[in-house]
Nucleic acid binder design. Structure first.
Lengths: 258, 258
DNA sequence: TAGTGGTCTAGACCACTTC
DNA sequence: AAGTGGTCTAGACCACTAA
């Protein structure tokens, strides 16, 4: 059942290097010995040394730069996500001026976000969430959220076209949304979110997600689907996020129902 | 950044097999050709064929059974976990008679569970959760929950010794707890759970978890930490669960705070 | 140009399952 | 005993980076 009946040289080398990393002898950013050197040091073939590095890569301890070297990955802090992150008191329109302020078409660095806005036709799932018909037009605002220079998650918000048409939410320029900004803008339309439903599942990333989030093949992601509703129960936002699992904990508190 | 500068034979074989799986030509449970056969079919070395299989393993499309073969992973139904699973109306003491009713020491199949009970000293974390001192005695009731013959998650409940001493919760025999049974027993002690706090994080499984849950190296798990409190806010249960990620979705609904 | 990561081959041996 | 997955070696070549 378990695929580790052997404990060959590759695992032993990986274990040694991992210990060097977790115990601080190889600090974040430090370059590891070249695969050829590792092979010589440990008296194994190049293949085996490379496999040891691959193990650490998959575990997320190192990143490799083609043609440059293998580097210890920074140990990022874990962010705790509770209901308070949606608190009304945090809604605000953050204005961030980036660089010289010039815009580059529909894609723009915005503080810690990069975002695009499209008008698309709702697929079955989005339509069901927003209580509209499949094929109806929806605005999708997609962004990659970064922290300490590393992507932590993607988030794609979907709105009914009529709900946001003509508002800043359809404008991909910087300074529009930011954390909580989307909720503020909805509130301005008389569509203030009141209740949230979040569905979470964990899985392995696709190749595209690996590239977008800068993670290795061995690092899981958490997919979050969120529906925001007004006090009347009318859906106003459907968002899909893909989070690097190792950077988050989700926390929920609720009363036991009858 | 991306590890796919090359598109060598290994990836091509993996792509072909993945397509066979996703398009139904290789249905769930089906055995893949042996690595040696794949190598011959595609005219590559055994190493390369094995690497192709490893790619699919990491992506979660197949599982490998040492000495037996490589199999397309079964698609199990996904269970949705919402607050209603804790509903008072579902609390009950389920009595299940297993086999001929004979017991085997402290380990006993119980319907769909296998459980053990120990009296241990609380570690820092358990102590903090149960609001006691580290080293204080706690009962730990650990079980593996199975569905359709496959383990889906483990769950280890911790109780203050005084809360459950002398109750059936310290008895590992069958017919004691079952789903909701633990809450019922606590309620009998005047310690009915009222609020729940759940923390979720996703990660890759340890070797032990892989064996216990019957999953391969490419399948993530979700670790759930749950604290149950009475209406007074007094903690009565601290539970740690490890779930096979692909078999669950967690769902939470709450109001936006001020 | 030199250094580094990524991949492949051909052959070998080991660990485990199945019969 | 036969079949299968897992690992290792020794050598080779390719793709990319940095000076």
């Amino acid at each position: 059942m378990s695929p580790e009946q052997h404990t060959g040289p590759a695992r032993r080398i990986a274990d040694a290097l991992r210990a060097d990393i977790t115990e601080g002898r190889l600090p974040p950013g430090m370059k590891l010995p070249a695969v050829r050197d590792l092979a010589e040091q440990y008296g194994v073939s190049r293949n085996t040394a490379a496999k040891a590095v691959t193990i650490l890569l998959n575990e997320g301890f190192v990143t490799t730069r083609y043609g440059s070297g293998t580097y210890v990955r920074a140990a990022y802090p874990i962010r705790r996500l509770g209901p308070e992150r949606y608190a009304r008191s945090r809604w605000a329109v953050t204005t961030v001026v980036v660089g010289d302020g010039r815009q580059t078409a529909s894609r723009e660095a915005q503080g810690d976000q990069t975002q695009t806005v499209d008008l698309i036709e709702a697929d079955e799932e989005t339509a069901a969430a927003l209580d509209i018909a499949a094929g109806d037009p929806v605005y999708r605002r997609a962004r990659v959220i970064t922290r300490d220079g590393q992507p932590t998650h993607t988030m794609a918000s979907h709105y009914r076209q009529a709900d946001v048409e003509g508002t800043p939410l359809t404008d991909p320029s910087p300074g529009i949304a930011g954390p909580g900004g989307g909720f503020w803008r909805l509130a301005e339309q008389g569509l203030a979110p009141h209740t949230v439903t979040e569905d979470l599942r964990a899985r392995m990333p696709s190749k595209e997600e690996m590239a977008l989030l800068g993670i290795g093949a061995g690092e899981p992601v958490v997919e979050l689907r969120r529906v925001m509703r007004t006090e009347d129960g009318r859906p106003v936002e459907y968002a899909i996020g893909v989070h690097v699992a190792s950077r988050f904990v989700w926390s929920y508190t609720f009363d036991i129902p009858d």
